[in-house]
Amino acid sequence: MSDTHAIGARRALAPARLREVVRPSNGAGFGLSRYKRFASSIVILLLWQGASMAGLIAPRTLAAPTTIVATAWELILSGELPHNLFVSLGRVAAGLLIGVSSGVTLALIAGLSKRGEEIVDAPMQMLRTLPFLALVPLFILWFGIGEAPKIALVSLGSAFPVYLTLFAGIRGTDPKLMEAGRVFGLDRAGLIRHVVLPGALPSGLVGLRYALGSALLSLVIAEQINATAGIGFLINDARDFLRTDVIVVGLVVYALLGLLADALVRTVERRALAWRPNLIKG
């Protein structure tokens, strides 16, 4: 759709806030503003490096940035970081798979039928008020200290956001669109497929984003439980040897995982929600 008319209509529909976010990307001052954004961070890094070199910050308190980079490189080359990352990713993947699929299943049951809501929703709403990380002692008693409690914790952490948002999305279906679907001959299955589920997808994906964040948080806590591999193990092990450089590398990896998870959902959103005004491209 390249005609000016459609573009005009689209502009009118896109909220002003979004346009402002989009504008700098083709504005002339972008390079400068990006540079400014990172300037203070670079200054802090330089101060940190200087303080470390001057002996103001002891290595056992916090390693110098250059040491951290060198350590990261060593850990990558030795295969230690890739191995532990692989283990952590495996836990997140398994936990997410279980958590997201059970969250989706429960949301569909509760969202699509009155009886399902009666059975599923009340216990879910009660359980979600529980800070799930407080379940760690119980999980250790139930599942021991192997992989099971770690995966279970990640599952639990990711199931609730998906359940809550998808359930709300399903129940938030525009009744006017449902009526239109009925007038045009959609049966119940057709309504669910063409109206309810696509309409609930945006909030479901918001839930997925929360779930990924929550899964990562669960991973951090879970890996404190007697892990013998994984990023958390790397950090705990480094603590015993006062290796602050390794600890920071582990923290950076956690942060990167968070960024990666967010980017992943954004990509899914761009594909699945291409119809949304702020995602339509010319």
């Binding site: 669109l177 239109a180 679907g181 063409h194 696509p198 309409g199 997808l201 929600l273 119809w275």
Partner: peptide, 17 residues
């Protein structure tokens, strides 16, 4: 209101059902 499904392209809205 038009009540078009926003997640379907125009032709798919018309072909709905």
């Amino acid at each position: 209101e038009p009540r078009l499904l926003p997640w379907k392209r125009i032709w798919a809205n018309v072909a709905l059902g």
